[in-house]
Write a protein that binds this DNA or RNA. Sequence first.
RNA 1: GCUGCGGUGGUGGAAUGGUAGACACAAGGGCCUUAAGAGCCCUCGUCCGUAAAGGACGUGAGAGUUCGACUCUCUCCCGCAGCACCA
Length: 892
Amino acid sequence: MVKKTGEASRGEQNYDPGSIEEKWQKAWEKEGFYQAKDPPAGGDKAEKFYVLIEFPYPSGAGLHVGHVRSWSAMDAYARKKRMEGFNVLYPIGWDAFGLPAENYAIKNKIHPSVAVSENIASFKRQIKSLGLSFDWNREVNTTDPKYYKWTQWIFLQFLKKGLAYQADVPVNWCPSCKTTLADEEVLPNGTHERCGAKTEKRMRKQWLLAITKYADRLLEDLKTVDYPEMVAQQQVNWIGRKEGINITYQVLGIKYQVECFTTRPDTNFGATFIVLGPEHPFVASLLSSKFNPSTKLRARVQSAKLEEIRTYVEKAKNKSEIERIAEGRKKTGVFTGFYAVNDLNGKKLPIYIGDFVLGHVGTGAVIGVPGHDIRDFEFAKAMDIPIVRVVVGPDGDTSEITKPEQVQEAAGTMVNSEFLDGLDIMAAKEKIMDHIVSKGWGEKVVSYHLRDWVFSRQHYWGEPIPVVYCANCATNKISNFKFQISNIKGKDYAIVPVPEEQLPVELPYLEQYEPATTGESPLATVSDWVNVACPNCGGKARRETDTMPNWAGSNWYYLAYLFANKLGVQSSKSTREENIFKENQEVISYWIPVDIYQGGFEHTTLHLLYSRFVYKFLFDIGVAPAPEPYAKRRSHGIVLGPDGRKMSKSFGNVINPDEIVKKFGADTLRIYEMFMGPFDQTIAWNEASVEGCFRFLKRVWHLGIIKASAEKTSAGLLQKLQKTIKKVGEDIEWMKFNTAVSAMMEFVNDWQDDKEGLSVQDAKQFFLILAPFAPHAAEELFQRIRNQELGIKEKIRQPRLTWRQPAHHNSVHDQKWPEFDASLLVEKEVTIVVQVNGKVRDVFRGQRSEVRGQKTIEQLAKESAKVQKYLEGKKIKKVVYVEGKLINFVTV
RNA sequence: GCUGCGGUGGUGGAAUGGUAGACACAAGGGCCUUAAGAGCCCUCGUCCGUAAAGGACGUGAGAGUUCGACUCUCUCCCGCAGCACCA
């Protein structure tokens, strides 16, 4: 834009974010202003502060205003911490492996590696236009071989410790696309999100990480960290620790025992049946051709009966999610013909198969106590099994249980239970557990909802799992053989880890990266990559073709930032064993734990739990310094479209941050996103309100130029300034960004109303507290006022900015966070509320020195006609007086 | 069903036991302007009262604790999120 000289000065009076924001962004970047300092050997004692945001997945859709919301807020937080003198680390990187990138690539016919680097470039440009104080020097990218070398290394450590293992697990299979699917690709109705075909479950050998081994610690250590209640509770539920007992029941007539897990052994005298899940091993052996019941039993298990069982089990196993939901909680089942015996009372318990019993929960077999468990009740009703009452609830009902609402699940007193009678259920539980254990009928166990983490994907765009399958090693058990064995199509293979010095196992560049129709990863088709010499015996071997899930790279990225520039310095030919974590111990122990980790609620039981697990493992192998990675976790609410719906292309309600920046500037966008509402709450976008924030900045700008040179700030305005400094500081600390902004708005309103305005010194103070929120405007105003100052004193005609060496010492962002003058906070004038029976009847204002003392106030209050009206003819029973605040007359 | 969070003007929200509705948006009116925009000023919970004064009611519903409750306790209703036939 070309301006005539004469207009320049007038032009500069107007707030024009376009003309200042980029200029400052460049200046800050040039100065490396936001680069965190690693602990200097023995020097600098600046306390560290690690602010972490969840690194973005660089999607093709570009930056979302939701990103902006949380990053701006955390940026304000980080900036304030910096101004308080902390050595702040606020890094960013890219979580770029995984399905979304692969799908985006398939859809747009761009290779994922190309798509990712394009998307990163545009994300970067967008992020940089927001003036966020990220330390770009530490950028990491999970798809960079230098990075995933260490993701693979971590996997090998798991393997070494036996915590990575293979098992047959059900996977989602799309019969139409002929590919395995991740859970997130299957819609809740059981169909494939891309093609809409009904998916199936198939068993497949997968890699698993033994997170359940860490369940207790993941649970226990939640007490040592500061997470929002909702997040901590969700993890507790997800881990789902339950103490109970596995009771063994002898099956009558054959040599077989059924184990049932229960948390309610106290009700065991009321047991009338056993139900096995369709996946239970007894069911399988019953149906297998090898099953050969004794002649005596054959009478009971007729082949017709077996057919019935077979049909039921087949049907149950093939039931889709939809069918189960459609059936609701209706119970079905089939009698096996077998009985087991309850050692407690010698009762015969018929054994059923029912699909409400899940194979993976407990022991996959349930002891049925229909009087005291609603599902058991429903099953008993459906199968016509007797119901026995063994607990009397608080309602004292001792009648026969015939209706679901009579089922006594909670608190009560034992009956019909021999030596337990009369006991409270909790006491009974203790007593019977000891009894059963001492008799050898069962053992106390802890069960978890959490299950081991399936760590394989049959997709292209992920970290290759760094192992090799070698048949020779397996058959010949070459030199101190220590490998796990994998049986593939009937043949044994040794699972040979790729030697650490050969990492990374690079993902080969593939033209055809679509999921293969064999159910294998597309990598399986690359024979010159797959076929490899066994690192152990040198013989012919095959690489693992599965890749890691998209969570793998995000498990440790917050550690990678700490030595981002040292990733992959080693030459690939080296034979030296490296351990980048060990080599960077000093840096890691300086920065860890993360002081505040900010991210979405949706990651609570996924990324957040997984990364805690991985970190604990790193701690156990001696490369991480503390038992928990994140000291504090906070989550942000979602930004919805203007229509109150989730932003989505199909609704056409997506707000593009670029457009807001273009129209109003980054500062307005940042302020609005912080002002829109409480940080952890879901809020709909409102463009009109964005304009309000723009108006606020325009006002600040205007006042900063014309009303910031008073000789002395008036007492009233000065006090307001002190209050605002205090409030803004506290609100940032409490992450109440919305009220911090409104406090500044209040102040600016007062500033505007004030005749004289602020003194230069006081105006600077205001720009300091504005700086974390509107970094560009605050910087520009701060520099202008500074130039003005210098100009007056030193007669330097400096048209621009005093950005001199050491440059950033002049920046508003390198000033000390202002302190408020507590003595000025005390209001000279106070308002005393006069209440009669708690209702406000009058209000006094006056000098604090005058309007004080209960006697004085009581006197004043009683003189008020408004108050008299309500006291007339009443006897005052009590007077409540709060100094400087209120007086309340309580009448009879 | 379980767990967690929430319910306050036309709207987003503020108020952590002491004047409910800060701040902002929307709406209405005015000033300025040839006009538009921008900016500035005023009104703005509901009802009664003539506009003022003044009054009554009011934070999902009901009860309780308290001199005093949006705030604490209990019961219920509704909404959101996560988990869910978890034995």
